[in-house]
Write a protein that binds this DNA or RNA. Structure first.
Lengths: 235, 235
DNA sequence: GAGTGGTCTAGACCACATC
DNA sequence: ATGTGGTCTAGACCACTCT
């Protein structure tokens, strides 16, 4: 953990606890630096995290203010690909493994995972529910060489916890692509869509800090249940 | 313009021109600093922009590499809310203004735009097409006090160009929320949806560097034409 | 003019990858 | 052991807002 992430966590807590209230002006940079015993640049890095999360706004010449946010309890304020974590404490996530097999990568997959054609990959299909309600069907491809010993009971819990905590791999970034297409019978069955109704698809490629691609994943949602929030910040 | 943005632009050009090829290792930090006559921290800021854009990947102990990107010609590599800019040189964007009026903000709008109930706002509905094909229906609300002299011919061109270039306002961030709902007859007419088919909606709140909210905008797309790409990078 | 953030530098030290 | 990025500091100077 770095100092600027620590400081960001502490200030974020104060905002969430209501110690810094909505619209309020934060102490100015110099005071914060003294309070948290750090340099100006370090404080800027910390506050920039909160800017990216949409919690505060900084105005040159004016000050730093708690943003009035329309987001409920911090969805997406953290970089969090894991469904289990995203709904932690608010919904029960359950997963049913439909397919779990090892197959050789075809041309398409080899391109997506940036591996050789014929290299073995896990092919996983999971139906995942929130509080017992069908929510998403996930099709995941994962190179065997990154996670050699995957087991069904890991899939039933959190694949991300296993990868980050047990294998000590760290996620660097996700490329996300959202589109919508007409459903086939497979998604209709689980998501409860009618013929002629589309699903929403997230196509996600996850990179590790090593530069390797961890997974290529297609998540298909019922259109009426789908929601995605993000904040774009000017460099 | 800052030095680190300048450097980022120069290196981005080299990647796009193919001077730095896919998968290639960039000169290491020290050399880049010498070449671009800047400090290490400044170079890091520059390269971090390209990391956020998904063009490069940096690996401690290993180097900086051009990422093999699946994105075509840089969609979303720039922070760009403007439709006109997003498809610049690839598609012709045309807009038809359906509604253009000034109304007092109701409770809902006052909350969204963070203004007083009763304050006047522009209410604009535009049907926008790409190469003549219906693409998106945009419903925009914009406080009158930020853009006092809006005219129809501005809407027919680029509202963003007017705001950034003529009014010298700068956009700080956009909050984006993507959902999907069943279409009503209004969207069906323009987008060519059938009864019982949903549209995809982007709900967008745009903030200026002053902290003011520039606009609250709902963009509704035909589900089959919608696409959104983004890159999530760990802090 | 006073208050407040943003950028840039030089240099120290640390963490990780690869050989 | 060496190469390469990441973090942190102290301090200088700049740019913007507010009144």
């Amino acid at each position: 953990m770095t100092k600027y992430r620590d400081i960001a966590d502490q200030i974020r807590s104060k905002i969430i606890n209501g110690e810094y209230t909505v619209g309020m002006k934060l102490p100015y940079e110099y005071i914060l630096c003294v309070n948290y015993r750090c340099n100006k640049e370090t404080m800027k890095k910390a506050l920039d995290i909160l800017v990216k999360e949409g919690l505060i706004i900084r105005r040159r010449g004016a000050g730093t203010f708690v943003k009035e946010t329309t987001l409920q309890d911090g969805i997406n304020t953290q970089f969090e690909c894991s469904l289990t974590k995203r709904f932690l404490g608010r919904k029960t996530v359950s997963s049913q493994v439909i397919v779990f097999e090892v197959v050789p990568a075809d041309h398409f997959l080899a391109e997506k995972l940036r591996i050789e054609e014929g290299d073995f990959v896990y092919h996983i299909i999971r139906d995942r529910s929130l509080d017992g309600e069908p929510y998403v069907e996930e099709i995941t491809y994962l190179p065997l060489n990154i996670v050699p010993q995957l087991k069904v009971n890991i899939l039933n819990h959190s694949l991300y916890d296993y990868i980050t905590q047990d294998l000590h791999l760290r996620i660097q970034s996700c490329h996300l692509n959202i589109t919508s297409s007409l459903s086939s019978s497979m998604e209709r069955d689980f998501l409860g869509l009618s013929k002629g109704e589309p699903y929403i698809q997230e196509e996600q490629t996850t990179y590790l800090t090593t530069g390797a691609i961890l997974e290529y994943c297609l998540s298909r949602y019922h259109y009426a249940q789908y929601e995605f929030s993000t904040i774009l910040v000017n460099h």
